[in-house]
Design a protein around this nucleic acid. Structure first.
Length: 326
DNA sequence: AGGATTTGACCACA
DNA sequence: TGTGGTCAAATCCT
C-alpha cells in the first residue's frame, strides 16, 4: 500500500509540474523554462511508470509477497527469528538485484572540488563499502540511496576512478530510485557526505539558463559506427556528444547494458549534474525497445538534419535527457 | 547524540 | 576457491 501512496505522490508531483508549465506558457521568453520543466515532468512520469511496473510485478501470483522492489521494510519480521529473517532478506535482496536495471556513466571529478568522488548526480547516496578490486589501481566505492530504509529505495551505485584518466570516475548505477526525496533534493535534508562537490544552493534562473546555453552551444553530435537504418539493430549502438568548447560528452548505449557516458569538464564551480537518473527511467523493466527507438529517432533526426556531424541541440537533447541544475 | 564513513568479515556466485 | 558485493561494528564528524 505504501507503494501505491508513493505512486500517487509521484503522479501528483507530475501534475504540479504540468500546472507550472501551463503557467509559464503565457509568459514571454519562457520556452527554455518550459523545456526544463517538461524534462523534469518526463522524468517524474517515467518514475511513476517504474513504480507501477514494480507494483504489477509484485501483484503477479508468481511473485513472492515480499518481492516488491519498493519496500521490504514491512515484511513480517516479527514472525521470524532475527537471524533467519536476515538470511532470507539477504537472499531475496540478491534475487531482486539481479533483475535491477544497470547502466554506467563516466563523470569527471569536479574541478576544484575534492577528488573523492564525481559530481553530484542529484541523489543522496550513502557509502556502505569500499573494496580493492583485483587488477584495478583504484578501489571501488559502494553507495546506496540514503532513503533505502525509509522508502525502500534499492538504487545503488559503484564508483571507481578511471584507470585511463584518473580525473574521471566510472559510475555504475543499479536500480531505479523509487524514493521521492530526490525530486525534492533542494528541500530535503541533504547528507553531508558530498562535501564540496555537492552544492545544493539553487542557481538563479539566469545562471541556470547560461549553463544550459553554454552547454548546448558547445555540443556536437557525432554518429559513430552507424550504417543506415539498421544502426540500432546490432548488439550495440553508440552516439556521442562532443563538446568542442568545454570538453567531451559521450554517450554509449547498448541494448542490454545502456552506458550513457557523460563527461563534463565544465569549469563552473557550481554543482551540475547530468540526468543519469533520467537515463535510468528509460531502462525500466522491459522497455528497452522503446528506448532504442527513441535513440534511433534522435539519431536519424540528427543524421537527416545535416550531412555535417554537427547539429544544434534543438533535436531534443533536453527532452530525451532533461537537464537539472540544482 | 545522531548520522555518515571506514573497514574487516561474511556470503553468494562463477 | 577466489572475487565481488554487502553487512555491521567501530569510528569519525557535525
Amino acid at each position: 500500500m505504501d507503494d501505491v501512496k508513493l505512486l500517487v505522490s509521484v503522479l501528483s508531483q507530475g501534475t504540479e509540474l504540468i500546472r507550472e508549465i501551463e503557467g509559464q506558457l503565457g509568459l514571454p521568453c519562457s520556452a527554455e523554462t518550459c523545456k526544463l520543466l517538461a524534462g523534469e515532468a518526463q522524468s517524474i512520469f517515467a518514475r511513476a511508470i517504474a513504480i507501477a511496473n514494480a507494483l504489477e510485478q509484485a501483484a503477479t501470483p508468481t511473485a513472492n509477497s515480499s518481492d516488491s522492489p519498493l519496500s521490504n521494510s514491512d515484511s513480517p519480521r516479527c514472525l521470524r527469528s532475527d537471524k533467519a529473517f536476515k538470511e532470507l532478506e539477504r537472499s531475496e535482496m540478491c534475487k531482486k538485484r539481479k533483475n535491477l536495471p544497470r547502466w554506467c556513466s563516466q563523470v569527471s571529478a569536479c574541478s576544484g572540488s575534492s577528488m573523492e568522488g564525481p559530481v553530484d548526480d542529484g541523489y543522496s547516496w550513502r557509502k556502505y563499502g569500499q573494496k580493492e578490486i583485483l587488477g584495478a589501481k583504484f578501489p571501488r566505492g559502494y553507495y546506496r540511496c540514503t532513503y533505502r530504509h525509509s522508502n525502500g529505495c534499492l538504487a545503488t551505485k559503484q564508483v571507481q576512478r578511471s584507470e585511463e584518466n584518473p580525473s574521471f570516475f566510472d559510475v555504475n548505477y543499479r536500480g531505479i530510485h523509487t524514493c521521492t526525496r530526490a525530486l525534492h533534493r533542494n528541500a530535503a535534508p541533504q547528507p553531508k557526505e558530498q562535501n564540496a562537490q555537492q552544492k545544493q544552493t539553487p542557481l538563479p534562473k539566469t545562471q541556470q539558463q547560461q549553463l544550459l546555453d553554454c552547454f548546448r552551444s558547445g555540443l556536437t553530435v557525432k554518429t559513430e559506427g552507424f550504417g543506415s537504418d539498421d544502426g540500432l539493430q546490432g548488439s550495440s549502438s553508440s552516439f556521442s556528444f562532443a563538446s568542442t568548447a568545454a570538453g567531451v560528452v559521450e554517450n554509449h548505449f547498448s541494448r542490454y547494458n545502456y552506458s550513457p557516458t557523460f563527461v563534463s569538464t565544465t569549469t563552473s564551480t557550481e554543482s551540475n549534474y547530468f540526468p543519469v537518473c533520467g537515463m535510468g527511467n528509460y531502462v525500466v523493466g522491459t522497455n528497452h525497445h522503446g528506448f532504442d527507438s527513441e535513440i534511433a529517432e534522435i539519431i536519424s533526426a540528427a543524421a537527416s538534419a545535416t550531412n555535417s556531424p554537427t547539429v544544434g541541440m534543438d533535436f531534443g537533447f533536453d527532452t530525451a535527457f532533461p537537464f537539472d541544475f540544482p
